[in-house]
Every structure is written in C-alpha cells, then in structure tokens.
C-alpha cells in the first residue's frame, strides 16, 4: 500500500494530465478495494453477529448464522441504559469540543505568534494531561472535584474532559495559527481593514481547517473517554463507553457487543462524512485564498 500511494504522490501534478488521471483512477480502485476489505468485511461480520438468533446461536461449523432476528437490538435497547447513555454522550462531547477550543485558542495563538523566554518549557507543559494515566487521573480528579464541592456530574466531566483534551486542541491550533501569513495581515491592515475584516481575510482561511480538526478530535476523544466519565459520572451519568466496557468486558456477549458497537459507530461515521465536507469547503486551496 505504501508503494502504491507513493507512486501516486510522485505523479500528482498541478493540472492532472490524462496519464495521471488514469493512474489516479486505477489507484483509487485499488485503494477502495483495500479499504472495502478493511471496513466492509469487519462491519458486515458485526452486523451478522448482531442478528444472530439466541435460540440457535452461531457456532462452528456453521458458515453463516442458521437464523436471523432483530431481537438483540430490541433487547439491548430496552434492558440497558443505552438510550440515556447516548443522550448523555452526545450532549457532553459537543460541549467539551467547543469549550476546549475556546480555552485553547489564546494559548495556541501565543505559542504560534510570540517568542518569549521559557516558550519551549511552556509547550512541553501543555502535554501534561496526556502523560497522566487515565484511571489515576480519574480517581484523583474526582477527589479534587468532591473536595471543591462540585457535585454536578455533567459539569465535573466537562471540566475534566476539557483539561484532558486541551493538549490536542492547543497543538492543532498552534499549527493553524502558525500558518496564518503575516504578509496577508500586514496587507489587510495597510488597506485599512477593521480588526474583524483582518481576521476574516487573513486568519479565518488558515484557521478554519484547524478549528474543525480540533473540534473533531476533541469530540471523538470525549465520546470515547471511559475512565473519567465512569468514575466521576457514576451512577446517574452513564456514557456510551461505560456500556461498551461492560459488554466487551466481563459480560462479553458477542452479539450484544456487536449491537452496541454498531450503535456507537454508525452516528460517528455519518458525522464524519458531514464534517469531511465542511473541512473540504474550508480548504484554503479551494476557496481561492492563495499565497
């Protein structure tokens, strides 16, 4: 796969020639086949497992499940805390993503556009949340939060998640702010543009991909995070990963795990397709803002 894509890279010219166009098509077909195998096969296995009839099971040497039913889906939906967990997770994650971005931006701006003594050390320090193991962080974070007298589960997880995912947002936004071109800012200022206009003309095109990348990354991390959501959130605030852990851990039941996995993944993938479109439209190369 490396060599295939590599040769693709070497022939991607500014305006595709016919030869390159044909090659791109060929590469695309090859790549899509590989990707189909690496996405479609695993997911269709999961779909099959989620439809296995508990009466007959699916055991070796049956090549396919002897009978299919949607009972698992009904059972998982009605006997677990899944519906509430989905609501919780999808309320929490977007909030975390936005708040984290707001907290991260000033620091990222500072890292990208100012030089000061101890900058390297400061950048290093932003990585601290990444090197504290999840459960250690969760336990002492909950102690900390309780001792501060904060009992709102939502607020507590929100705070913890923001701190935990700030490094991603800061790192990504630092890269973005670094790509803002000073000559564009100067030019806009020289033309007498208002600060807002300067921001829209010079900053926004370079920042938008970073903003979206940061929102996406933090959103995914928050949806997936287990240790804090469980320790700080229990018992009333259940998120999807808590349920998933239960189904993939002690209670591992392959068909039910398949149901929960699919419920967890499908909205994510749809979301990604939408965001990918956004990301693409925000691409400076496409919106005509060129250097």
């Amino acid at each position: 796969m490396v060599s295939l894509a590599d040769s693709g890279a070497t022939v991607a010219p500014k305006k595709p020639t016919r030869r390159a166009g044909a090659l791109n098509r060929f590469l695309m077909i090859v790549l899509m086949t590989i990707v189909a195998i690496w996405l479609i096969v695993p997911f269709s296995m999961a779909v099959l497992w989620s439809l296995v009839d508990p009466e007959t099971g699916w055991n070796y040497p049956d090549l396919l499940p002897p009978s299919l039913t949607h009972l698992r889906w009904v059972e998982v939906w009605t006997t677990t805390a899944l519906p509430q967990a989905i609501a919780n997770s999808y309320m929490l994650a977007p909030t975390v993503a936005v708040v984290t971005l707001i907290l991260a931006s000033p620091t990222a701006y500072c890292f990208a556009r100012y030089d000061f003594a101890g900058k390297g050390l400061a950048q290093l320090a932003t990585l601290l949340p990444l090197v504290v193991p999840g459960f250690v962080l969760a336990i002492f974070f909950s102690s900390l939060i309780f001792s501060l007298g904060i009992y709102s589960r939502f607020l507590s997880i929100l705070m913890a998640h923001c701190v935990l995912f700030l490094p991603y947002a800061i790192r990504i936004m630092t890269v973005s702010f670094g790509q803002v071109r000073q000559d564009l800012i100067d030019a806009a200022r020289d033309l007498g543009a208002s600060p807002l206009a300067v921001f829209r003309a010079a900053y926004m095109p370079a920042l938008l991909p970073g903003i979206l990348a940061s929102l996406i990354i933090v959103f995914i991390q928050s949806i997936e995070e287990f240790a804090i959501a469980f320790i700080v959130g229990a018992p009333n605030f259940t998120t999807i990963p808590s349920i998933l852990y239960s189904y993939l851990g002690y209670n591992f039941i392959r068909p039910n795990a398949a149901v929960v996995s699919l419920i967890l993944v499908v909205p994510n993938v749809l979301l990604m397709l939408g965001l990918e479109r956004l990301l693409k439209s925000a691409n400076p190369a496409q919106t005509g803002v060129k250097g």
Binding site: M45, L244, M272, E276
Partner: peptide, 25 residues
C-alpha cells in the same frame, strides 16, 4: 473526497470496537 472520508473512518471507531471487529475477523 470519498477516499479521504473512507480513509479517515477508523478515526471514529472507538478502540474497543476496533478490537472487537478485528477479533471477530
């Protein structure tokens, strides 16, 4: 666009789900 979307799909699959799918296969 489609390639990019499909390639990035695993980003949205939680680690445990990925493991689960992999072990099934």
């Amino acid at each position: 666009l489609a390639i990019s979307a499909v390639l990035k799909a695993p980003l949205f699959v939680p680690g445990l789900v990925a493991s689960f799918l992999f072990l099934n296969v």
